[in-house]
Structures are given as structure tokens and as C-alpha cells.
Amino acid sequence: MSASPAIVTHSASAELRFRYATYLGDTSLILAQRLGEWVGHAPALEEDLALANIALDLLGQARYLLSYAGEIEGKGRSEDDLAFLRDPSDFSNLALVEQPNVDFGHTIVRQFLLDAWQLELFEKLQASSEPRFAELAAKALKETRYHYRFSAGWVVRLGDGTEESHNRVQAGLDALWRFTSEMFAPGAADEEAAAAGLGPDPASLRAAWLANVEQVLQTATLKRPADVPFRWFGKRHQHTDHLSHLLAEMQFMQRTYPGAQW
């Protein structure tokens, strides 16, 4: 399907690299913000720490990717400018990660679906024709394996736990499943990035992702929801209303006091 990076001779345009870096960076950034909302509210101190630690790793990925995006854009925008001064319609994160926190079961399902996707993505992104993407992928993959172990472990514990915990994780899964098809659907920066050897073909990640997810759901005694034809396309800048509310909170300081520094 996609060309091996070794035989890619042309380099992807700066504009495409910018869009691809912001797509991946926004996805990590928005999920980090959602996880950060749990600090002080998680069911136990250990899980509070876990969600904050995962958020920190995601924020690290976002910083790296958005700094790089600002660098190749060449307009002098920093990672902070891109994070705090863009409008909702400029963000291209997956719609899955902007979905609001409901309960711990819902949050764990969201994390698990995303972790399983990042596992496949980073594994293949290591072969990117752009060294900056390849080296981030190698680094982030190690952290993602750890996140995945945590989230998959909790999906099993809660799914195969009490009736209450089972019902809550199943409800989270039912609510979030429709946001997963976007990860593998064509039609955005990732498809062009694949053609240019920058990253994997999004559709090529699906088989391994699904096999992995189905195995965990089975162990957790959870039922995989049916696929629906309707799709959100956060990566094409079509967001659910939740993103504007998230950004209103996240961007408040920089919008209200432009240029404020710690």
C-alpha cells in the first residue's frame, strides 16, 4: 500500500508537515487537558496520580509536536501560541479526546481506545521519512505501552468487576465507540502524510487496533458496540461543541492577559 520510507525521494511540504504535526499534537494536548480535569477528583489517590502522569506524558508529546509545527511554519509562533491562541476551528484533534469526562469508567474507556491506537501509530511512525516524527515516535511508544498496560488493566478490572462497574464501562464504551472510526478514516492530513512517507496510512492501523481492543473487551466481558455510518471528523476541524468549552477554560489566562508569563 504505502511506499516504504526508504524509497521516498521527495520531501513533504512544510505546510503538510505543519498540518500533520498539529493533528498529532492537538490530539495529545486535548486529552492531556481532559485528564488534568481529574486532578483532585479521581476515585483514589493512586488513580489521581496515574491520570496526571499520563496527562504529563501526553503534554510532553504535544509540546514537542507543536514546537516543531511552529518551527516549520516559520511565522514565529511558539508551542504556547499554538496551544493557547488558536480558535476551536483551527484544532484538528480526534473528536474522541475532546469528549467530556463522565465517570472513571468512561475516562478509562476513552484512554484505552486512544492508547491502543497510539500503540499502532507510534510503532509505524518510527519509519517516518521525517526524523523529527520518527524520534518522537520511538520515545512516545515506550510511554504509550505503559499507559496501555494501565488502561487495558482497568478496562478488565471494571468490566469483569461488579455489576455497577461493568455497566458503567459498557456505557462509556457505547457512548464513545462512534468516535473511533475517525482514527482510520481517510480524508485529512494523515492520508496525505501517508502518501508522502511522513506517517502510516490511517486505514492500515485498524486491523491490529481492532484485534487488540476486541481481545481486551472479551476478557473484560464487555460487548463491542456496532459500527455506525455517521462520523465526526475532529481531524478535519469538525468538532463537537465540547471543544470550545474545553478551550475556553484552557486558554483563559493567555486570552485575558496576553503574553502573561509565570
Binding site: 504529563l56 506524558d57 503534554l59 510532553g60 508529546q61 509540546r63 520515545k139 512516545a140 510511554e143
Partner: peptide, 8 residues
């Protein structure tokens, strides 16, 4: 080298 990408 950072130990973790987000290590403060």
C-alpha cells in the same frame, strides 16, 4: 535526553 517527554 529527557527521561519522559513530559518530565517537568
Amino acid at each position: 535526553s529527557p527521561t519522559y517527554t513530559g518530565c517537568p
